Amino acid sequence: MKLYPEFTDRHLAEFERDGYVIIRNFFSEEEVKLIYETSLQDQVIRAHSFDFNDSKGLRTKLALWYTPQDDVYGMYSRSARMLNAAEKIMGGGVGHYHSKLMQKEPKKGGAWEWHQDYGYWYNNGFLYPEMLSIMLALTEANQQNGCMQVLKGSHRMGRVEHNIAGEQVGARMEKVDEALKRHELVYVELQAGDALFFHCNLLHRSDSNNSDNSRWSLISVYNKLSNKPYKDEPASCYTPLQKVEDDMLLKIGAKGIDDAADFLSSEKDKKFKEKIE
């Protein structure tokens, strides 16, 4: 008997057709509570979080790191259910490009403009769109608190040009406007524990958080091992991951990240923005 949800052939077919798929309750209530409460108290995460401003000056806070550690976040990104799904989608072994804790706070959490993740990862030296994001909702995500919006099937457009929008990289609106005429706009509303798998070329955005509730999520990005970048990117993205059993997340307990982890920090922020421009 399987204790955890499995990414099936049906999920794969939906992912390939639509560019995304949702698995409800991919992580249990106990697991999500552990990750969320650990992150709320994690002083290292807080110290290494920084803001991205949207085009209206509202801020979304995030912490981003590359190499997964032996902590609660690393047990998430290296868990069997995550890696089995990523390998099934990619058709081979995967490395860990980065994980990020997204912290969209009540009343002030900013929007994300229309973009494709590969719109800027391509400029970081990845020649092929063999990259995948898995987002775990740590809190409820709905239209009021700025849930993700996607254009269903837009990953089939391939990569489109991107420009700077505020302090973010946004897709060229000429292409987005045409895509909006042809692809269904879906508000990805999630409960804590639900997981969203999405293709790196899927057009997506989110509104600002106008509610009284936070919207937090933990996103891990995987890269196919053969898709080694030709530019200087962290070796974790082309290094095989050490898979751990699913129950390791609860066994590790409320262990936060080490300050020595390879964070994208405020000091590296300028270099990061220069890279994506």
Rank of each mutant, 00 (worst) to 15 (best):
Y128F: 12
E161D: 15
G119I: 02
K175E: 15
D117H: 09
L185N: 11
G170M: 01
R159A: 12
N163Y: 13
Y128C: 08
W114Y: 15
E167K: 07
W121V: 04
I164Y: 02
I134S: 11
E184W: 00
Q149D: 03
Y120K: 04
V160G: 07
T139D: 15
G158H: 06
E130S: 15
G146H: 01
A195V: 08
H155P: 06
G153A: 07
A165N: 12
Q168M: 05
L196F: 01
R159P: 05
N201H: 14
L202P: 01
N145W: 01
E174K: 09
G193F: 00
E140A: 11
S154P: 04
R172D: 14
N145G: 08
K175D: 15
L127D: 08
I134K: 03
M148Q: 00
A171G: 14
K175L: 13
E174R: 10
R159M: 13
R156W: 02
A179V: 10
Y118I: 10
V186Q: 01
E174F: 11
A192M: 10
L127K: 14
E167N: 03
D177E: 14
I134Y: 01
F198W: 09
H162V: 05
A165Y: 05
L132A: 08
V160A: 11
C147K: 00
L138R: 00
A192S: 13
L127A: 10
W121D: 03
A179K: 06
M135C: 06
I134C: 15
L185E: 15
P129T: 04
F198A: 08
R172H: 14
N201F: 07
H162S: 02
G146V: 06
G193Y: 01
S133H: 07
A195W: 04
L203T: 00
I134G: 03
L151D: 02
I164V: 09
Y122S: 13
E174G: 14
N123C: 06
C200G: 04
A192R: 13
L127W: 10
Y128L: 13
Y120D: 02
A165V: 15
R182M: 12
A192C: 04
Q191D: 11
K152C: 03
R159E: 09
L190E: 00
A165E: 06
E130T: 09
A192Q: 10
I164C: 02
G170N: 05
E130I: 08
M157I: 12
V169Y: 04
L196H: 00
E113R: 07
L203M: 08
G119H: 04
F126R: 12
Q143I: 09
L138H: 03
N124G: 11
R182G: 14
A137H: 05
Y128M: 13
R182H: 15
S154Q: 04
